[in-house]
Design a protein around this nucleic acid. Sequence first.
DNA 1: GCCAACGTTGGC
DNA 2: GCCAACGTTGGC
Length: 139
Amino acid sequence: MAHWLLKSEPSSWSWDQQVAAGAKGTFWNGVRNHSAKLNLMAMKKGEKGFFYHSNEDKAIVGIIEIIKTYYPDHTDETGKFGMVDVKAAKPLKRPVTLAEIKAEPRLKDMVLVNNSRLSVQPVSDAEWAVVLEMAGEKA
DNA sequence: GCCAACGTTGGC
DNA sequence: GCCAACGTTGGC
């Protein structure tokens, strides 16, 4: 199973709002970048992803689960982009900050470190395990 | 089809 | 608030 990382500015869509959306989840719209789109298209139902707060927090705060695969984004007037549905799976015991990620040698190849502007990113199995460990979760 | 200019993102 | 990095746009 692949793992992912989804970025959002807390001021536009926060982890708290994701949790409040509950088990039925919400659509993850607004992606307007082709690399991000390709990642969205590769997602499968049941796969997990990190929820990352950009700007204010700069930290991974929770884990989401993909509950619906890629379909057209009705908010994209060009019709080129799509979205998936996600739900909050669980919060991390403690957030893992960008500074901590950058300081961890095992995460030096993370997309978050190398291409911070990409809003939907793949996360390798090894990186996934390291971040969970840093969050105080059992791998 | 190339590439310069511009806009946006996001870390600092 | 600044600015670097990147993606997109548009003129040629």
